[in-house]
């Protein structure tokens, strides 16, 4: 796909680059980062401070889950006292107010509950082609949200059989789980 058609990220970046070049030229002539709004001509101040945000998130207690992914398994937690299964996994059972859980491997076969295709993507996902996100139900009674390996949403159906697989997400290169249609 890439090569012929630009990704949404490339288009956004080009547009932003052009805009910033325009701001820089205005700044040079006026000494101020002020530009007219393209549609209305009103004056806009273009922020001279850029903020890049990347969060660092604590996952120490969820290490078994991520180690499981590396082994090709999707794990959930199960409270040893009341039997409640948690996905996304959590090590505290707020029902029992205890933190005594075991890690269990989830079944792979599920059914598709609902789905969508993301056509207009968030900036940080705009380097991908349109992707399908689905929610699938597993026999354990938990739902799992994940991408569905299919490019045409019309080929999917609510209630169809799907299978959970661990894959490497590229180009980032890290493990994540994904639904695969089996019909």
């Amino acid at each position: 796909m890439s090569g012929e058609k630009k990704t949404q990220k490339e288009l956004t970046d080009e547009e932003m680059k052009k805009f910033i070049e325009f701001v820089e030229s205005m700044k040079k002539s006026m000494g101020l980062p002020m530009v007219p709004d393209i549609k209305t001509g009103v004056a806009l101040w273009v922020d001279q401070r850029e903020l890049n945000v990347r969060f660092v998130i604590g996952v120490e207690r969820l290490k078994p889950f991520f180690n499981g992914l590396a082994d090709g398994k999707v794990l959930a937690t199960k409270c040893k006292i009341c039997g409640e299964i948690y996905f996304p996994p959590q090590v505290d059972c707020p029902k029992c107010r205890k933190s005594d859980v075991e890690w269990i491997e989830l079944s792979k076969e599920g059914t598709l509950v609902t789905y969508t295709q993301i056509n207009v993507k968030p900036y940080s996902f705009s380097h991908y082609d349109d992707y399908i996100v689905g929610i699938g139900k597993l026999p354990e009674g938990v739902n799992v949200t994940a991408w569905v390996r299919e490019s045409d949403p019309k080929k999917l159906k609510v209630g169809m059989k799907i299978r959970l697989e661990v894959v490497k997400r590229e180009p980032e290169g890290y493990y994540v789980y994904e639904w695969v249609p089996v019909e």
Binding site: V113, Y115, Q117
Partner: peptide, 17 residues
């Protein structure tokens, strides 16, 4: 983080269902 849902996407899940 992994699945890049958008707000239209969340409501589209409801629309499909």
């Amino acid at each position: 983080e992994n699945f890049g849902l958008t707000f239209p996407g969340y409501y589209a899940l409801h629309a499909t269902a």
